[in-house]
Structure formats: C-alpha cells, structure tokens
Design a protein around this nucleic acid. Structure first.
Lengths: 249, 249
DNA sequence: AGATGTAAGTGGTACGTACCAATTTGGAGA
DNA sequence: TCTCCAAATTGGTACGTACCACTTACATCT
C-alpha cells in the first residue's frame, strides 16, 4: 500500500508519518493489533527507519502504541483515558465532555510581586506582575475560580480584552511565541473559603480542590496559577510517564 | 577533558553519558549555563552525535536541561521541583522530605471482580483480584489510606508477607518483571468518611484528597489504587509534559 | 511425540553523513 | 556610529549501515 507521504511542507517528515499512522490505527486497526515492523513501515512509506522510530517514539509517549522488543509494535487499548492532554486546558477538557466552556475575566490588574509571590514565581520581589482573576464555567455552571500571575516583562501589552477574546494558552502561543517546556501541578484538599463559596455558588460544607500550577518555559516560570474547584463536581486527571530517572536508583 | 566513557557494561552508552553529564552539571555548572555543543560533546566523550542527542533528549524530558535551536543546550534552573519522580512513590517521596516512611498491610485478600471493579480495571467481571488495604505513615504519623486492586493472573503467588518486606513497586520490578508504561491519576476533594477519619486519626471536618491511580503495562491496567489522604497535611505534586499531540490542533 | 537448538524476525543501540533552520557574530557598507 | 548582510555556530531532521537483545517459529534430533 505504498502510501508515499504527502508533500505537505512546513511539517517534518516524522510528524506527517505520525498522522498517517494515527489515521490508519483509528480507521482499520483494533486494540493490541500489531503494526507493521519498523523496517516494513520504512519501505511502505519510503522513509528511513530512523524517521519511523522517531514517529513511533512520539506515538509511544502519547500512549497510542506500545512496543515489545522481539515481538513488535502494538495499538494501545483503553480508549477511555486516551487523548488526555499533556497539559490541562479547561476549554478543551470541557469540549471533550460535550460542555460549553466559558471564561469570565473578573479582574485584571498589574502589581509588584511581594515576597510571597516572588517566591512562587522565583523572581525578585518588586517585579511587575499581572494578576488575573477568572471564573470558568461549563454550560453556565461555575466550576473553577482561577487566579493567575504572569511576569509583565514576558507578556508586554497584555490586556483584559485580549484575554476575553481568546484563551490564555492560545494567546501565549500566537502572540508571545511561548514554547512551554513542562508544568508542575500541586493538589490539595481544603475547606472552602467564603469567597470561593460565593463565586462557585456552593456551600462551605463542600470541600474544594486547590490546584497550583507552575508553567515553565526554558527552565523559567512564566505562569503561576492558583485555582479552586468545587469538590463535588470536579475530578482532575493527569497522565504520568516514568522519567528516565528510574534507571539511576 | 577527554573523559572516555567507563567500560561499565550492561547499560547502554547513552545512559552512561547521561550519568556523566548529570554529574558534571551538579558539580561544576550553574543554572542557565551552556553545555558544550552536541558536536563538541561527541568529540569529548568519543561517541557519535546521535548518541549524544539520545542522552540529551532524555535529560530534556527529565527537565534537567533545555535546548534552543541556534543557541545551545542549557542547565535548567529551579532546583525546587527538580527530581520529582515521574511516578508517585510514597516511600521515595517521604525519604526526600527527610521523613521515615512506613507501610502497614491492614488486610490482604483475594476476591472476584464485581462489576464496578471490573469496569475500573477493564477486565471481565469474575476475574480473580487481590485486594490490599494499606496504611502509609511518615514518622509514625498516618498520612494515606490505600486500597489497591491487582489481577491475580499478573502477580501469581503474591503474599501479604512479601508486601510487608518490600515495597509494591520494587516487587513489581524484581519479582514480576513489570515494565510500567504510564499511569493515569485522578484527584478529587471529598468529605472525609468515617473509616478514613478513624484510620488517619483526623476529624471528619477536615476534607480528604481522593486519589485514583491506574497503572498501565503494555496498554493494559495492572493496578488500580484508590487512596485517601488527609487534606491538612498532604499536597500532591505532579509534573506534566506537553504531549506531542499539540502538533495536531 | 517431545525436547532442543537454530534461524528468522523484531525492536534497541550505535555509528556515520548530509543538509536545514534558527541564532549569534562580526565585518562591510552607508 | 549605525545598519545590514554574510558567515559561523548550534540544534533539528533525514538518510544509510551495522550489530545486539529478545522473541517466535520451525526444523532437527532423541
């Protein structure tokens, strides 16, 4: 089925191959079914084995395939948890659940980082910081109360309007060329405080999930967000992968 | 400084190079300092550039370095969140905090998966399952109440004693040759139930963090664990990486 | 028929080469 | 002095080759 890769320019070859393989798996393969051998794929698509391996490695990291030495490469089962975004995005998560996301910017201000905040962002106290308070809703139901802190120097000219018209991460990419490296998130179960209870329209008897997120670009924190979610409606899911570190234990 | 790699057999070359580079960064480099160019490392250690890139890719995934096309490779700053295990291990996490971990196996039994559990584990109802109830303590303070479910067929001959003598993940590796592919975790803030309150020695007024973990091997669930942690003492931290998926949006 | 060992097939590691893309550097020119 | 462009440097992509480690299938021997 010599399907030579499309001449779609701009994207690297291994990325195009990934798309081809994803499509093939989705349309005509079952869980645990074996994919062609690497050398076979190499021939079929007219690319080198190194390129095939690069594509397969990415698919493996996405959890779409698994590889066993000596046996082959196989389609991962378990559709349920599949397609979990590596990074949490309220908008996309809600869309996947068939709900309509809405984001209200309650306040937008610029301030200087006091000691506590400077500590969180790992910057010098006094550095100008945006503070953004947002209420996230799904089908008009309040779900999350988020306070984000961004260094002004990394996002010059950011306005409340821009945030209301787009999503934060889309702005990051399109307007500021942000390339996120990784993020750290911390979860804690807490009693609901008065303000959160009011905004989320819930009783203080219901506990809240406190989520802190540190987003890194080039080893530097470019976003710190503290969120509160209502415990009775919100389940937060993440996907973990073994860090190569385990080899050194 | 031609430091030819040790003749340490058994481990692949790129892995040895990783160790060398980690040691070098820890001992003589500062955050944001540039590492030698890939071609330079290749010469210094007498390995091919492909091997160097394999080692650097792994270090990048670990968050220890970051790379910028045209500029170079740099040491990541932010020691604080560094060394976060990709997978959560109560034992290692507590040791890092300087606390002494202890694990009590409260009960160990074999049963058949009823519908609810079969759903969670994605197996057929009726399949034999181990049920393990454990209390995890740090410095003799109860921290976590865990209930784990494992398919018997994957862990034949598992005993309560074995679990008490080792840690679960160590057993997985050494005795059953488990190769974890990835894990999914779900967090939820809940009101503390009576049993949890009793075991953890806390008031029911304090909320709990409910953690579900699904551990995958070769695309199949080999462990489902439901944990409850006391909200006033427990912060759960994870590291997220962008899945290659973002390229397809 | 069963046990055994060999060959074939698969992914894993490692080498080398070439060129592309982004960034920095420094010299030529205004 | 400043601006601009070319060269050098760096990581990114892609090719090819060779061999190793592990698994499976099959032929051979007992």
């Amino acid at each position: 089925m010599n399907a030579s890769l499309a001449p779609k320019e701009g994207k690297p070859l291994y990325s195009l191959l990934m798309q081809k393989l994803l499509k093939k798996m989705a349309s005509s393969m079952k869980p645990d079914e074996r994919l062609p051998a690497e050398r076979e794929i190499s021939l079929q698509y007219g690319v080198s084995r190194a390129t095939v391996r690069q594509a397969l490695a990415a698919l493996e990291r996405m959890g779409r395939i698994y590889r066993v030495q000596g046996r082959g490469t196989f389609v991962s089962p378990q559709k349920v948890h599949q397609g979990l975004p590596g990074f949490y995005s309220f908008s996309t998560a809600m869309k996947k659940l068939g709900k309509t996301p809405l984001s209200l910017v309650l306040s937008f201000s610029e301030r200087e980082a006091e000691e506590y905040l400077a500590e969180k962002l790992k910057v010098h106290p006094g550095l100008p910081i945006y503070q953004i308070l947002r209420l996230r809703l799904a089908d008009n139901e309040p779900m999350l109360l988020e306070t984000s802190y961004l260094p002004v120097e990394r996002f010059p000219g950011l306005t409340k309007q821009a945030l209301e018209e787009s999503t934060m991460y889309r702005l990051f990419r399109s307007r500021y060329g942000v390339e996120i490296n990784h993020a750290i998130e911390a979860f804690q179960s807490v009693q609901t405080d008065a303000r959160t209870a009011q905004y989320l329209g819930m009783s203080r008897a219901v506990p809240s999930l406190r989520i802190e997120r540190f987003t890194y670009e080039r080893g530097r924190i470019i976003e710190y967000t503290e969120s509160f979610a209502r415990g009775d409606q919100f389940v937060y899911t993440v996907r973990l992968e073994p860090s190569a570190k385990e080899e050194f234990s």
